[in-house]
Amino acid sequence: MRTRLTLVLAGAALLVLAVVGVHAVSELPAAGDVPHPYGARAVAAAFGHATANAVMSVTLDQRGFDTLGEELVLLAAAVGTVLLLRELAAETREKTEHGYGPEDVFEALRLVGYVLLPVTLLVGGYIVLHGHLSPGGGFQGGTVLATGLYLAYLAADYRALDRLRPPGVLDATEGLGAFAYVAIGVSGLLAGSGFLADWLPHGTLGKPLSAGTVPLLNLAVGVEVGSAFVLVVGKFLEQALLAPDDVPEEG
């Protein structure tokens, strides 16, 4: 009964929203013809600061404050996830046999994993460092770096992964990455240009050393994001591997 009422309420609400929405959106120009005054200014500003990737210029230079907040949302989530998935004193930890030990891995998979791991890390590093020149940046590159480490888990086993994640180190790199971003921002204050201002020499457009502080900020973000994702996925893996068998899968 309640379920049916809920569906009716939601259905009616969605219908109304759809109708009003269609009426409202019909007042917009067609997709492709929407004017972008801010966008045009942003592109001009990107040129002004010799940043080839205008999106990166907006993200880290013009609207860097937003990105600071966003990065800290990720930090909050990583820290929060570690907090929420922490072991309680009452829980006993059986870290003996996992479901996926070295002898269970196919040789082919192990080989591919070992080969792909350094390649992935290299690609991730490239994406982070070239964010101001080509699509990419700290967030994208950091994610690739983090998933690269999980190749170690897939190719070997949880113990190998655990060795690559000594406790406390990742929390430190994550926090320090975020703090580095803040510090670079403060350096702008001290240099007299304003918080998060791009005050370093801008160089020439398209060269690796251009766009002032943007590559540095990318690096800080990359470190933070990579650490955060390794932490988060590691915590979930821990839960999955240590869960008792009788937790039901369906509600």
């Binding site: 972008h36 966008g39 942003a42 990107a46 609207r63 949302v73 929420l84 988060v232």
Partner: peptide, 26 residues
Amino acid sequence: VTDPVVQAMTLTDIVVGAAVTALLLA
């Protein structure tokens, strides 16, 4: 070119979405 501001906003939105997903799944 297409609007870079909107793409920056989307990037931010995706990261925030991933963060919230992690918390809710935990």
